[in-house]
Design a binder for these strands. Structure first.
Lengths: 206, 206
DNA sequence: GTTTAATTTAAACGGTTGTTTAATTTTGTG
DNA sequence: CACAAAATTAAACAACCGTTTAAATTAAAC
């Protein structure tokens, strides 16, 4: 699909509202009001509300890119690569947290008939890359062999998103005054914590 | 609020549908159809759809109980308590995963005017207990001092819920045939993985 | 058994939903 | 300028929403 300026404006507005109010909580009228376009334009451009969400997913997932590869295949030791990898992942999901939130909820909705192939392929590719990386570290004796590789991504993303979904709670607990302080915490303490648990998991001797 | 049999049936039906379709994706008509009651009964018993959700939260959170306390204050060494603690937490959130999903999404919806005080208090109390436990372990020299205690719960719950929200993906990746196999994985490999990362975090020497 | 209260019901309320229509305006092309 | 295609609009569509009403039924109290 060719995306002109107006289509992208609709997608970005939909992304914001879907993430804030959910898919069912967002109306085409709200989207068109906020994007300052006519209600009929959504159907005209995307066909339906569901296809609008599909277009958004494709738009964002292609944007996710694959920096993965360049970090893992670069030179340097495995531990440094874990740090670089996690820093990259946290930055990326924090930037794309809205779309991730939408996906988390709609993907687990058994009655939603949205096509999630792009999302599933993206997850599968990333897993295969990570698996290769961990196994190479295990063969070199740097990483522990007793590791559940499938659960590494859930640990990283899950930790971040539990924090994000309970932002209001952690704002109070950690005395954040504004979103800037939240962003700082994510990119410093939270990223550090995730690096710590993953490195500990990979190198821990029982 | 006194809960008779019919009220509880409405609550359980609402819990199922809210978790599957979201709050906005669930209609009172669907709830009443599935619970085999008249539409007006929801308003009659609970007042409104939003108050129905609030009643569900209170019903479930009081059910969460506080086994926490008994594990942490029991005798035995700290490492064993970590294992027991995580096993209890995973069992509990897996049992109450529907309500947790609803809360995760609605609590992060900035326009929902639901009262989440019960949820926030529950989280706060549990955090204080955990903090006391970790600090006592640190003073005894069993636990590492360089630990972000605030992020331990997000790591445990987040890992579980990322797995749960992407169940379809992990069903394919790990070749689960049915829900029984998913449940087994949660209570064995996933629980073991979380125990491993938390113990590694708490005792890891850099 | 009579009266009062609680429960249950079908129907109706005004409002909103996603989508389509048909007419109008703008843009692009020769 | 003329003409066709694309974009934009206001209005209408049937369907559904959460909630309320007022009447009918059941249960409880005396």
């Amino acid at each position: 699909m060719k995306l002109n300026e107006k289509k992208i404006k609709i997608l970005l507005t939909a992304e914001k509202l879907f993430a804030e109010n959910g898919f069912d909580g967002t109306t085409i009228r709200k989207i068109s009001r906020e994007a300052k376009i006519n209600i009929a334009m959504v159907s005209y451009y995307f066909g339906s509300k569901e296809k609008l969400l599909e277009a958004l997913l494709i738009y964002r997932i292609s944007d996710f890119g694959t920096e993965f590869d360049s970090i893992i295949t670069s030179k340097g030791n495995h531990i440094e690569k874990v740090d670089a990898f996690i820093e990259m992942v946290v930055k990326r999901i924090h930037k794309n947290r809205r779309t991730h939130k939408i996906v988390n909820f709609e993907y687990s909705n058994p009655f939603r008939k949205i096509n999630f192939d792009a999302y599933e392929n993206y997850k599968k590719e990333n897993f295969i890359l990570l698996e290769k990386f961990v196994k190479s570290g295990q063969e070199e004796g740097v990483f522990n062999k007793d590791v559940n590789i499938e659960m590494i991504i859930p640990t990283i993303l899950g930790t971040y998103f539990h924090f994000y979904y309970n932002k209001q709670f952690y704002k109070n607990l950690l005395n954040f005054k504004d979103q800037v302080e939240v962003d700082n915490y994510v990119h410093n303490q939270l990223t550090l914590h995730i690096k710590q648990i993953i490195k500990a998991l990979l190198t821990y001797e029982k």
